[in-house]
Every structure is written in structure tokens, then in C-alpha cells.
């Protein structure tokens, strides 16, 4: 039932070399519907799918052809909106960037909501605490003085300084992989620190002191245990733990 088999395609004519080999993959999805039951439970779906397709395609197939009640978020479906972060085979990933062939489809593929947040239905979680932490680090340009008449200039080196942390898409894969955040939602979490880092190290910004003061708090960067879960989880390849360490270093060098 859960073993994947390469389905033989009907013999095509000589030009059918591009024939797609479908496999039967089992998707074990963590379902929760508060309007039906207070308990969450695993439900298996078997789909025949091209292993070069993505997990999101399989979820679409399930929702459109098997069970329309399956609920999940996705917007752009191309890895830039950050809507479909979920826990696939025990790791936080974007469903739209995870190919089925890469996650051993011969075994059941588990799909569940990201951890550390309130599950509202199936794979949809309440992102409000996550965005509250994001808002709390003031993720916007703070300047003083008159507005320049043209753009604010910056050298290529100054831009390079915070380039890595500009890539964040706020998908919450890092924050919801952090064991400190699982246990205590008061911790800002990696994503908020990454977005503070993006402005702290921006030469055009003048609010760095305020943001450092916010992250110097007891729920700030000092709660990071450098477990590197966030760096492993980031679908954009941001070196999240390194960014957190750089904020720590900035706090220490500011002090001493």
C-alpha cells in the first residue's frame, strides 16, 4: 500500500520518449477540523504522480480530486510568497519547492502544520504571534533629517553587508523549527531577528540602536542556543544562525 511502484506506461509510438513515469505515493497528512473533532489525526492519501512534481502539486491533486476539505495556504506556488511552509517528513520546507523524488516517496510522506503555532485547520496555522514579533523589531527604514531629493545612495560593499537577510520571505519555517520558540513564544524567533539584522546593518538606516536595544531584551537574541535548526529550515538558504550571532556581536562590541 505504501510501497511506490513505477507504473508501466502503455507502449507509445517511437516519439514517446518523453513519457512520464508515474509513481504511487502515499501522503500521510495531519488533519484537524475543529468543526468535526477536537482531535487531530493522520489521514493517508494515495496519488499517482510524477516524482518530478512538487509536494504542492500532490496537495492540489488531493484537494481537487480526492478530498476538497483539505485546507492549506498557498499563493504564488513558486517559492517567493512564503505561504506554504509546512513540516514535510519532519522537516520544515516549502511545499512548492520540495520535489517528491527528493523525499523518498517509496515511504509514506508525512505532511503536517508547522509547529509552535495554533493550528486552525489542517495545515493552516495562526501566524499572528509570528507577525507580532516581526512588527516588534520595527522592520522599516528609520532616518532623520530631510528627505533626499534623489535615492539614498549606498556603496556596493555596504549593500553586501546585509544582502543575505534581505532574502527573507517571512514563511516562518525558521521560527517554527526553533526549539526555544516551541517552548516559549515570547522569544522573538529567528525570522524577526533576521529582519532586524537587515536594517541594523544597513548603512542608510539610523534606527539600529533602537533595534539592538529591543533584541537585548530577555526574549531577544540571548535566548538563541545556536542549534542551527533555523539555518537548516530556511528555504531561501539564509544563514539565519550567523545573522543572529552577528547581532549578538554587535551588542557586545557596542557595550565594550
Amino acid at each position: 500500500m505504501s510501497t511506490a511502484t513505477l507504473d508501466k506506461q502503455e507502449p507509445k509510438d517511437a516519439t514517446g520518449s518523453a513519457a512520464v513515469e508515474l509513481i504511487t505515493a502515499t501522503f500521510r497528512i495531519r488533519r484537524f477540523n475543529p468543526e468535526v473533532s477536537a482531535e487531530a489525526s493522520w489521514e493517508d492519501f494515495q496519488v499517482e504522480i510524477d516524482p518530478k512534481e512538487r509536494v504542492l502539486d500532490a496537495l492540489h491533486k488531493i484537494k481537487w480530486e480526492l478530498d476538497g476539505t483539505l485546507t492549506f495556504r498557498r499563493s504564488c506556488a513558486h517559492g517567493i510568497c512564503g505561504s506554504d511552509a509546512m513540516r514535510i517528513n519532519g522537516r520544515n520546507r516549502l511545499a512548492c519547492k520540495t520535489l517528491i523524488k527528493d523525499i523518498s516517496p517509496e515511504k509514506p510522506i508525512t505532511v503536517e502544520a508547522i509547529k509552535g503555532m495554533t493550528v486552525l485547520k489542517d495545515l493552516v496555522v495562526d501566524m499572528e504571534p509570528f507577525f507580532q514579533a516581526y512588527r516588534d523589531v520595527m522592520p522599516f527604514l528609520i532616518t532623520s533629517g530631510n528627505e533626499p531629493t534623489r535615492e539614498r545612495l549606498q556603496t556596493a560593499e555596504d549593500r553586501e553587508r546585509f544582502d543575505d537577510t534581505t532574502k527573507c520571505i517571512l514563511c516562518a519555517a525558521c521560527t517554527s523549527s526553533c526549539p526555544v520558540f516551541w517552548n516559549d513564544g515570547q522569544y522573538f524567533g529567528p525570522a524577526a531577528i533576521v529582519n532586524a539584522h537587515r536594517f541594523i546593518f544597513d548603512s542608510r538606516d539610523e534606527g539600529g540602536e533602537q533595534r539592538l536595544e529591543i533584541l537585548n531584551d530577555k526574549d531577544g537574541v540571548w535566548r538563541c542556543r545556536t542549534t542551527f535548526n533555523c539555518t537548516d529550515a530556511c528555504p531561501r538558504g539564509i544563514e539565519v544562525t550567523k545573522a543572529i550571532q552577528e547581532v549578538k556581536r554587535a551588542l557586545i562590541t557596542r557595550r565594550f
Partner: peptide, 8 residues
């Protein structure tokens, strides 16, 4: 053809 087997 797709087959469904909902165990739960």
C-alpha cells in the same frame, strides 16, 4: 486514475 484510501 487515482485511488483513495483514507485510513482515518
Amino acid at each position: 486514475a487515482t485511488t483513495e484510501s483514507s485510513s482515518v
